[in-house]
């Protein structure tokens, strides 16, 4: 059985299943994968050894709020994704797709991104 590798850093999770960066993605200069509104902590890409790609048409703030897919391109080995509270993630060189945790709003009956 083929196993799916998953890397987790708090409420952010990465899998390795993308072969190339889609044409509708562009490099993001801020390098923030997810941002905590209350704690102000961030899941952050070390731009010296990795790049963050986000969908071209979507504003980054909306992208964060709606848990849109982002892609981390790891160019060199090292601690490519850091966070103030969580241990840093070290990936082999390659592309990683990012998934953000969501939850269910019992009262509005809608999905929402886990806000932190």
């Amino acid at each position: 059985m083929k196993k799916l590798k998953v890397w987790r850093q708090g409420d952010v999770l990465f899998t390795q299943r993308i072969q190339e960066i889609p044409k509708d993605f562009e490099k993001n200069k801020d390098g923030i994968v997810a941002f905590g509104e209350v704690s102000t902590h961030a899941h952050r890409v070390d731009k010296t050894i990795a790049n963050l790609y986000v969908k071209k048409s979507i504003d980054l703030a909306i992208s964060h709020a709606t848990a849109e897919l982002m892609i981390v391109e790891c160019l060199k080995e090292g601690q490519q994704v850091t966070h103030e509270e969580h241990e840093s993630l070290s990936f082999p060189v390659g592309l990683y797709d990012n998934h953000k945790q969501v939850e269910w709003d019992w009262f509005s009956k809608m999905e929402r991104k886990v806000k932190d």
């Binding site: 059985m1 083929k2 799916l4 590798k5 899998t15 848990a67």
Partner: peptide, 25 residues
């Protein structure tokens, strides 16, 4: 709670997909 992962995991891992998920780190 991670959107898209279940469907992808099934495709990746086959019938026994729940055991295939590994939070390796």
């Amino acid at each position: 709670t991670f959107p898209g992962l279940i469907k992808k995991a099934r495709a990746e891992a086959g019938a026994n997909w729940m055991q295939a998920i590994e939070f390796v780190q």
